[in-house]
Simulated assay, not measured.
Amino acid sequence: MNQQQDNSNREEQEVDLVPVFVWIGNGIKNFFNAIGAFFKAIGHALILFFVFLQRNILLIGAFIVAGLALGFYLDSNTKSNYSAQLRVEPNFNSSSQLISNINYYDALTSEGDYTRLAKELGLTVDEAQQINGFSIEESYNDTELLEEYDRLARDADTMALDNFTFEGFKEAKREMDYQFYEIIAKANSRDVLEKAIPKIIEVKENSGIKAARLSYLENTEFNISSKQYQLTEIDSLLAAYQKMIATNQSSSGNTNLFVGDQRSSDNLATLFFQKQELLEDLQDLREDKYGSENTVNIVSEYVVRGSVKEEHTKLKLVILFFVLGILVAAIPAVWRFLKSYPNTSK
C-alpha cells in the first residue's frame, strides 16, 4: 500500500515538473530567436544602406572627390609653412609670465591685430602678417620629475613625505611649476620666425623676477667665494703636511706622520677628498651662475618646414564630405517619407 502511494507521489511530481521544463525551453528558444532577429535586422539595415549607396553612388562619389581635392589643396599650402619648436627653461619664477606672453601673442594673431604684434616682436606689419600662431605647454618626462622629487625629498622632512608620493607630486604640479616648456611658433617664412624667436622668449623683468634674480646671483657669488676660500685653505694645509712629511722623512727616514697623540694620521687623504669635493661644487656653482644670466634659457631650438604634428587633413575631409554626401542624398528619401506619413498613419 505504501509503495503504491510513493509511486503515485513520484508520478505527480514528474507531471508538475513538465511545465517548468517546457517554460525553460521556450525561454531559451525565444532568447536565441531574439538574437537571431537582432542580427537579421542589422544585416537587413546594412543591405538597405548599401542599396542606398548604390543608388546615390555618383552624388556621394562626387562629394568624396571634392573632399579629397580640398585636402590635397590644404596640405599643399601647409607645406609652405614653417614651425619653430623651442624647449626653454625659465629662471627666477618667470614661467607664469612667459606663459602669459605666449598666450597674448597668440591672441593678437587670432584677432588679426598685426600692428600691435609687430610692435611686441620687433617686426614690420608685413612680417607680422606672416605669423600663424603660438602655443606653449609643459615639457617633461618622468625621469626629470623624479629628479625634482628627489631634490624635494632631500630638502624636506621625511615624516612630511610619508603621505606625499611621487604620483601625488605629479598631480599637485600646476602649469607654471615645471622646469621646461615647449613653445611652438608657426609662420609662412623661416626668416620671420628666426627674427621673432629672441622676442618670443623675452620676459620683461618685474619687481618679483628682479628680486629673485639678484638674490640668486648674490647667493651664488657668495657660495663661489666661500668655496674658493676653503680651497685656498686646504691647499695651504696640504702644502704644510707635505713639508712636514718631507722634513720627517729626511730626519728619521720614515714617511709616517703623527699628529698630537702619536697615532698615524689620515688627515692628508681626507684633505685630498675634501679638495675634490670642493672642485666639483665650484663646477656646479659656475654652471648655475652662467646658466642663470638670462631670465629664459633656450635648451633646444629648430625650425622645420610644414606642420610639427601630422594633421591628417585629407582623411578628415574625405570622411566629412562622405557624411555630407549621405545627408544630401538622403534628403529626397526623407522628403518622400514625410509626405506619405500622414496617409500611412490613418
Rank of each mutant, 00 (worst) to 15 (best):
F169L: 12
E127D: 10
K195N: 10
I201M: 09
A156F: 02
K170Q: 13
F164H: 07
R154I: 10
D126G: 07
T143M: 13
L152P: 02
T158F: 11
G208P: 05
D191A: 15
S135N: 13
E127Q: 15
T158S: 14
N141A: 05
A185M: 14
E137I: 06
Y140P: 00
E218A: 11
A156T: 12
E202Q: 12
Y216P: 10
L121N: 02
I136N: 07
D177I: 04
M159H: 02
N141E: 09
F169P: 08
E167M: 11
R174K: 09
K204C: 08
E148Y: 13
A153L: 12
F164L: 05
E205G: 09
Y149T: 11
D162V: 11
S135V: 05
Y149M: 08
V125T: 13
Q129K: 14
K199D: 11
L152S: 00
D157R: 12
E182F: 10
L145D: 09
F134D: 02
I131P: 04
E194N: 11
D162N: 04
G122P: 06
M176C: 05
L193S: 08
F180S: 10
A128Y: 07
N206E: 04
K204Q: 10
L121M: 08
D150S: 15
F166E: 02
A187L: 05
I184H: 06
I197N: 04
E137P: 01
E137C: 02
F180V: 06
K195M: 07
E144L: 12
N141P: 11
I131N: 03
E182V: 13
N132G: 14
Q179R: 13
S207I: 07
E120C: 01
S139E: 08
A172P: 06
Y178Q: 05
K199C: 06
G122A: 05
D126I: 04
L146R: 15
E194Q: 14
R174I: 00
E120H: 07
D155K: 15
A153M: 12
E138A: 13
N141I: 12
A187C: 10
R154P: 05
F164S: 02
R213T: 03
K173S: 04
A128I: 07
V203F: 01
A118K: 06
G208M: 13
